[in-house]
Each structure stands twice: as structure tokens, then as C-alpha cells.
Amino acid sequence: MAMEKNEYALDYVLQAEYNLLRKQFIPGIIVIPSGKSNLIWNGVHFISQGPYEGGVFRFSIVIPNTFPDGDCPRVLFLSSMFHPQVDPKTGELDIKRYFPVWKRNGHHLWQVLRYIRRIFQKIEITNPTNIEAAHLYEQDPETFLSKVSESVSQSKDNLYTSDPSISDDPHAILFTPWSDKLQTVRQLLLSGKKEAFDQIHGLSWMKPGVHQILAREDTLPSHQN
């Protein structure tokens, strides 16, 4: 009975966290709780500027079952990532650099997403997880950018390939190549017509030749434009 009560409390906390997340404006990041476990959130980060520009990197947030007490969540990149703060073997982001101790009333999962976005805007090389990446960033920028470019290219090549770790997840974030049918649905969505929503089956699409989310700027709140 106590276990059921704890699970119910955890579900409530995670729902509250997701509701808080939905109120935040975090450009370029899509995230949704896994259909297999509410302790895993699937995410994709579209990078629009900086050395990683054009990259579309998949990641997972793994939440401890003691949340919001205990250890902090883990962030695992599923795409190949060459970055000073990302373990080159496991793809795990050094999240404890920013959250050395997870504070129940002070830290939230939307802050983790902001940190994910920040590591591509401001690259830090102090106490790196990937020593080679940190060294090249400081000593050989040209080679560093070349390796980053490889990561970006690989993320694009794997964009339409379902990762084995999420292939059986009903809430996996999947993409399909551009088609005229999707263009029609997009136009209906932007028009706000109800029939557009009857054609959606959980897939996302992107502008031809440009890996970015399609959205009209005038659909954003005024303070976000």
C-alpha cells in the first residue's frame, strides 16, 4: 500500500513538472514523457546557431524513482556528440556541473532543458568529461569544428532512422521526410481549421533542406517574438 502511495505521489510530481515545463519558452527543444515509463522523457534539440548549428540531437532525461528527492536526473544523448561536457562513450551530459545537489524546492526539469540548450551556446572546458574535445577547443579550434561538423552531419543522417532504444516507445519523437501531403496538413494547421487535426498521427516535419521546426512567429506570445 505504501509503495502504491509513493508511486501515486511520484506520478503527481512528474505531472506537475511537465505542466511547469509547458509554461516555459525553450527555443529549439521538443520533449515528451515516454510511453513506457514516466521516469524517461524523450527529447530532441534543434540547434540554430553556433558551432553546432544545424544539428538535430536526440536525448533522454532519466529521472530517479526518488524524484524530487535524492540524486539529480541524468541526460543521455542518443545522437553522436562531440562536446567537452558529454561523455564520448555513453553520451551522458555532465549535468552535475550545474546541479551538484538536486534541491527539491529549487530545481525543476525545465531548468535541465535550459541547461541542455546552454551548453551549445556557451562551451565550457573546465573539468571536461571529454578531455579531447576540451583540448581541441582550446588548442586546435579548426579540428574541433571539424569533429563537431561530423556530429552535426551524423545527427542529420540519422534523423529519419528510429533509434533501437525508442523504437517500441509509443511516445517516441519520430520524423518523416518531407511530402506534399505533409505540406497540405501544415497549411491547414496554420489556418486553424479543425480538419487538419484529424490528419495528425504524432509525426513532425521540417522545411526542405533546413532542419528546423516550422512555426509562424505570430503564433508565439508577444514577449517571445
Results as ranks from 00 to 15, higher is better:
Gly35Trp: 14
Lys194Arg: 09
Phe99Ala: 05
Glu138Leu: 05
Leu189Asn: 03
Ile116His: 06
Pro221Ala: 08
Thr66Glu: 10
Ile95Pro: 08
Ser155Asn: 12
Thr129Ser: 13
Ser149Tyr: 06
Glu138Pro: 00
Pro170Ala: 09
Met3Asn: 06
Ile30Ala: 09
Lys96Met: 11
His135Arg: 03
Ile123Cys: 00
Ser151Lys: 00
Ser165Tyr: 05
Asn225Phe: 10
Ala2Thr: 12
Gln49Val: 10
Ser79Asn: 12
Asp11His: 07
Thr66Val: 06
Gly106Lys: 15
Phe77Met: 06
Glu4Gln: 12
Ser80Glu: 11
Leu14Tyr: 04
Gln49Ile: 09
Met81Pro: 03
Pro64Lys: 04
Val86Gln: 06
Lys103Tyr: 07
Glu4Lys: 11
Tyr160Asn: 09
Phe67Thr: 02
Gln224Glu: 11
Gly28Ala: 04
Gln154Ile: 06
Ile29Glu: 03
Pro51Ile: 15
Lys89Leu: 10
Ala134Val: 04
Lys89Tyr: 05
Met206Cys: 14
Glu7Ala: 05
Ser149Arg: 11
Val31Lys: 00
Lys96Asn: 13
Gln139Glu: 11
Pro128Asn: 08
Ser80Trp: 07
Glu132Ser: 09
Lys156Leu: 15
Asp69Ser: 10
Val148Trp: 13
Asn127Pro: 01
Glu17Ala: 07
Ser60Lys: 09
Met81Val: 02
Asp180Cys: 10
Gln15Thr: 14
Leu10Lys: 12
Lys193Ala: 12
Gln187Lys: 13
Leu113Ser: 09
Thr66Phe: 04
Glu7Arg: 11
Phe197Leu: 13
Gly91Tyr: 06
Glu217Asn: 11
Leu93Asn: 08
Gly202Arg: 07
Gln15Glu: 15
Met81Trp: 03
Ile32Gly: 03
Asp168Asn: 14
Gly192Phe: 10
Gly50Gln: 14
Pro100Ile: 05
Asn225Leu: 12
Met3Leu: 13
Arg58Tyr: 06
Asp11Asn: 10
Gly55Leu: 08
Asn105Asp: 08
Gly192Pro: 10
His223Pro: 02
Ser34Ala: 02
Arg104Gln: 07
Ala16Gln: 08
Val152Gly: 08
His211Asn: 14
Pro88Ile: 09
Met3Ala: 13
Glu7Tyr: 08
Glu142Cys: 03
Phe120Trp: 09
Ser153Arg: 15
Phe144Ser: 00
His107Ser: 06
Glu195Phe: 05
Phe57Ala: 05
Ala196Cys: 09
Lys193Ser: 13
Gln212Lys: 14
Ala215Pro: 03
Ile95Gly: 06
Pro221Asp: 06
Gln121Pro: 01
Gly202Tyr: 01
Leu145Ile: 01
Lys194Cys: 02
Tyr52Arg: 08
Asn65Trp: 05
Ala196Glu: 02
Leu145Ala: 08
Glu124Tyr: 05
Ile125His: 03
Leu188Trp: 15
Leu10Trp: 09
Phe175Met: 11
Phe99Glu: 04
Asn19Ala: 09
Asn158Met: 15
Lys23Tyr: 04
